[in-house]
Each structure stands twice: as C-alpha cells, then as structure tokens.
Amino acid sequence: MLQIILKRLQIAVPTLLFVITVSFFMIRLAPGGPFDSERPIPKEIAENLERVYHLNEPLITQYGYYLWNILHGDFGPSFKYQDYTVSELILQGFPVSLSLGLLALLLALLIGIVLGSIAALRQNSRVDYLVMTFAMTGIAIPSFVIAPLLALFFGVMLGWLPTGGWGSWQQMVLPVISLSLPQIAIVARMTRASLIDTLNSPYMLTAKAKGLPLRLILLRHALKPTLLPIVSWLGPATAAIITGSVIIEQIFGLPGIGRYFVNGALNRDYTLVMGVVIFYGVLIILMNLLVDLVYAWLDPRIRYEE
C-alpha cells in the first residue's frame, strides 16, 4: 500500500511541473492582457502597471519568478481582484465549493445507487424504464435550465427557499439539488449497468444456488463489485464537483471557486488561472490516488497483482 502511494507521488511532481509550465505559457499566448479594457489606458500608465506586476520582464524570467514564488507557497496577487492574493481567494471560496460539492455528491450517490439498483433488479420492467427515463432527462437537461427553473418555482412562486446567496442551510438546498441532478442520473445508469453485469456473473449463480436470500446476495456479494466503476468515476468527479460549477455559482450568487476557472481565463488574470489550475491538478492527483487505494480494498484481484 505504502509503495503505491510513494510511486504515485513520485509521478505527481513532474506531472504538476508539466501542467504548470504548459498553462503558464498558454495563458500568456492568448491575445490581450489583464489590464486591457474598453477604455485603453495611456501608454505611460500601462507601463507603470506592467512594472508593478513584473510584466515588463522577459517571459522566461517571469516564469522563473513564478516557480520560485510557488515553491514558497506564494501564488501572487490576483490581477483582477487586486485586494486579494490568489491564495486568499481560493481559501475563501473553496470551503463553499467543497461543502456544496460534497453534499451534492452524497445526495447523488444515495439516490443514484438506490435508483440504479431498483432498475437493475427489475430489468426491462416499467420501473426500470421510468428510472432510466429520469436518468436520461437528468443528463440531457443542462443545469443552466434546471437551476433557474428550480429558483423560479421554489423561490419566486412558492417563496419557500431563497433564490440566491450563501450562509444559511436554506440557501444550500436549491444549489445542491441543481448540482446533484445530473450526477444522480450518471450514478443511477452506472449502478444499473454494473449491477446487471454482476448479477449475471457465475459467482452470483453460485450464491443463488446455495439458496441465499436476495438481500444477503446483494449486500455481501454484489455490492462491492458493483461499486467498482462508480469508485473510479468518483475520483475525477469529486475533484470536478468540489472545485465548483461556474453556472450554479453564477445563478445562485455563490462565492465558490468555480467561476475563477472561466472568469480568470477570460480576464487574463494570469496568477488566478495558474492558482486554480495547480489547485485542481493537486486535487485530481490526490483523488485518483485515493480511488486506487479504495479500489485495492474493494477488489482483491488488484491487491494480489500489486
């Protein structure tokens, strides 16, 4: 186990360095700069700004500065939100995205696995079709349609829940549901397919032949292998969901970090984009490591191979 971890971490460092290097130069290749605006600023003032932010120096020197600074844990100031450092922005926004994402994920797993199992056990029945229709709809309807509809119905028409903001549990309900709906659909479909697969495998037949009750077969023999594909999906999905969703954040006015990906790039906020890319990179690497460990625990074959 320890070996797996060490091996993974060894690969992680060059991977991250590669990601940093590529994104550093790519964002600077994009036309325009952080201080361009509708009102072009006088040349002298632009030069002042560039000097203050070291943008007047050769790109390779800037890259050197940047690497040196991140080695010291300094991601620099945001170009766009000048009163905040990139670390401050990420540290303030991440708890919001994390709690929102984890709740949505939990909800998706709970409902998705139950729905998927029901569908698998009643394969090709009406219940199955109903669940799968729901799942397809969940995947097909984008969150920028669902979220405003939910807000309109529960917030404006019924007045039960707030339509935006962050702080109370009531404000979490609609964003969590909107974020989890497509995930519920994905989990339900995966569970169904995987469980059907498992149920048809020879050791299931053996279990059935032994006369074990269905409940025991499912819990003791079918559950673990059924969860395998979901676990491997869970790694990148968790990283993606807990780093926020720009759409959900925009619609519900949430202070998460999802918007920093998109807006950071659009604003040419070099340091902010780099900060979130590195943050996301580290999260993905960690999540994938975690998935491998859980995998090894769930599936004895993998353990033995190692």
Binding site: P162, T163, Q250, G253
Partner: peptide
C-alpha cells in the same frame, strides 16, 4: 452590495424580495 453578473438571476432575487 451583491455581485449580480447574471441579470436573470438578479431579477429572480428581486422578485423573491431578496
């Protein structure tokens, strides 16, 4: 002061009295 870049969302918040 709330940042309201999405004016449709802002309209909803206005209608909900927020």
């Amino acid at each position: 002061y709330y940042p309201t870049e999405d004016s449709s969302a802002e309209l909803k918040r206005f209608r909900a009295g927020e």
